[in-house]
Design a protein around this nucleic acid. Structure first.
Lengths: 348, 348
DNA sequence: GCTCCTTCTGGGATCGATCCCACACGGAGG
DNA sequence: CCTCCGTGTGGGATCGATCCCAGAAGGAGC
């Protein structure tokens, strides 16, 4: 970024073609081959020639065409990233972690936000194939994505959710363990009517988190009331709606475990609307520790996933897969930590 | 994404080359030219041939190589996006808006998060040039980026901040007007010691927001105490530190205007630490309305920028620029709205 | 003097898709 | 019968960079 672009002459009308390796070669008085060797550093070049070529390239503002290079080398140097919703703090910081690590490894990142739509997810996957990305990191909405990418020999890593278990590398947190732990804590405080507000229970994160919740009941020998497991979709509005219903029941739950930050926001807003005091009238715990949870009074106890670390782990896994395409498939499970705050108390 | 990838035969060992247009042509029994015309829809093809070619392509799982296509056409179909910090809600939803609009227009998005570092910003710009993106949308850290891109004939649009005024298209909100409005409101409530906590005051957003703040004092004929203008950097920690200092002064301000959501978070946390009651002990207003501001009690009055709309406007502007490279340069200014909540009151 | 090796350079093919151009075919019109 | 035009198809050049290979130049060793 330090040098000037070649600009023909001072006039204004000339076609402002961008400098190619041919221009550099001509200006330096050597062949294209030599120029290429001088710039990439691969192969023999006399030092003096190398320096001259490099200087000329800089003076011309030459930037090699990544398209042409990758076409020839049959391997791109970008990673595709496909997340569900950038406006959700969790995905945003995941993307942020991936972006930083990718850059450190000299990869550029192509990011798409599928908004939870499988059609858009499929389109994005096709775009990644067309662009010949080196690999893809995805928070999948179905098993199709990684299946499709794998058929096209593009390494893929599933993050957060895991659909193609055993068929694709993955980086997840210990959803079941963390869910069991927070539920056990609520049971130990004396709660019995503990609701689970969750997006869905058939897929991976939802399945594991609800399994952990159920497991805690089993551990404690407390019978489970399945009517307290409510699926609330993927937006704050839905969770708000479900929260209102749940908290208006004659025998409303004394505690709620919200399975992610969006659901927690909805439930929290519902409780605020109904003027329920946390934790006196309601204990609330959440998955995904996001900033607002330590700002509201009382703070919300939450399972913290280190999303930046997840992004890093995903990139690391992807790079290994690119370098060793036939190494055994691996699932990395990260531990989750618990941020205890003031949103839980014994039932009154 | 519906079809299978060609897989030679049932065996395992064959080199799994990906299908090219040549394979499609051979399988359909026509030439590459005809195949290209059939698939792109440009030029004459007999309908029966067209359909046959398309079917063959689908059966083979053929996905055209975007690298090769763009190399030939000398024009990429991705837009580069460069934002400061994805973990900040404002930039994340900006990116989200851009992503959605870009996809609608059949562009893919290359996103980089520069973390506030001009070096990374410069690197990213160079990567965009190398990738021959069709255009770039950037929240600039210096005038260099758009200058560099412009020299390389890559259309660029500055969003949020504006460095290269007059040299580059831009989409901004009415920072000065909105800042003046909220400051006037505070003055009208009777506040006189109103602090401004801001990231910096020399660049565009900071300059305009502080100009609005100062303008309101001038309008009201109230003298300004410049010691109450504090620059607090770009992270929550810095703002927290400055907030502590400011709020521990013997004659501490009765109101604070935080110039963005990160600064507001820091100030809010400082006030909470010092057990100051909002709005009784301190009135607080902010720029950037993010979810937590409507969750804490009382809610924080904030200037709301519609970041999704900003993203849309930026893409629209960029596409126009791509289509008309020499049209007059334009700055689009969006209005900001005010979300009034309970965080302000007359000084006690 | 001859071979052999190392160092260095340039020519041309290559990646995959597009697109210009030449040409073939068949029917209409003079 | 010959030309002209519209329709449809294939051959080959092209985009920009890389890389294989041939070969030149120069020094060492026998």
């Amino acid at each position: 970024m330090t040098s000037e672009v070649a600009d023909g002459s001072a006039g204004a009308g000339e076609p402002p073609r961008r400098a190619t390796i041919r221009d550099v070669a001509t200006a330096a008085g050597v062949s294209r081959s030599t120029t290429s060797r001088a710039l990439t550093g691969r192969g023999y070049v006399t030092p003096s020639v190398r320096d001259r070529v490099r200087k000329v390239a800089r003076d011309l503002g030459y930037v090699p065409d990544a398209m042409a290079r990758h076409l020839r080398q049959q391997a791109g140097h970008s990673v595709g990233v496909l997340v569900s919703d950038l406006r959700n703090d969790f995905y945003a910081s995941l993307a942020s972690g991936i972006s930083q690590q990718a850059r450190k490894r000299q990869y550029t990142m192509m990011l798409t936000d599928d908004g939870g739509s499988p059609e858009i997810e499929a389109e994005a996957a096709e775009a990644f194939v067309a662009l010949r990305v080196a690999g893809v990191i995805v928070t999948p909405l179905s098993a199709d994505v990684t299946d499709y990418l794998t058929r096209h020999r593009i390494p893929a890593v599933e993050v957060d959710r895991q659909f193609a278990a055993g068929a694709c590398d993955a980086v997840v947190v210990d959803n079941a363990g963390a869910a069991r732990r927070v539920t056990s804590d609520l049971l130990a405080l004396g709660h019995r009517r503990i609701a689970l507000v969750i997006d869905e229970t058939h897929w991976t994160t939802g399945r594991d988190r609800s399994a952990g919740y159920e497991g805690a009941f089993a551990d404690a020998g407390v019978p489970l009331d399945r009517s307290l497991i409510v699926t609330a979709g993927w937006d704050v509005g839905g969770a708000l709606q479900e929260g209102r219903t749940l908290l208006s029941l004659p025998d409303r739950p004394t505690a709620i475990f919200a399975a992610n930050n969006v659901l927690a926001e909805g439930v929290w807003r519902a409780a605020a609307e109904l003027r329920l005091d946390i934790p006196r009238d309601l204990s609330l715990v959440s998955f995904d520790d996001v900033p607002w949870m330590s700002m509201v009074r009382p703070g919300i106890t939450a399972v913290a996933q280190d999303s930046v670390a997840m992004g890093e782990a995903a990139i690391a896994q992807l790079i290994e897969r690119i370098q060793a395409p036939s190494a055994p498939i691996r699932t990395v499970m990260l531990a989750a930590t618990l941020s205890r705050r003031g949103s839980t108390a014994p039932p009154s």
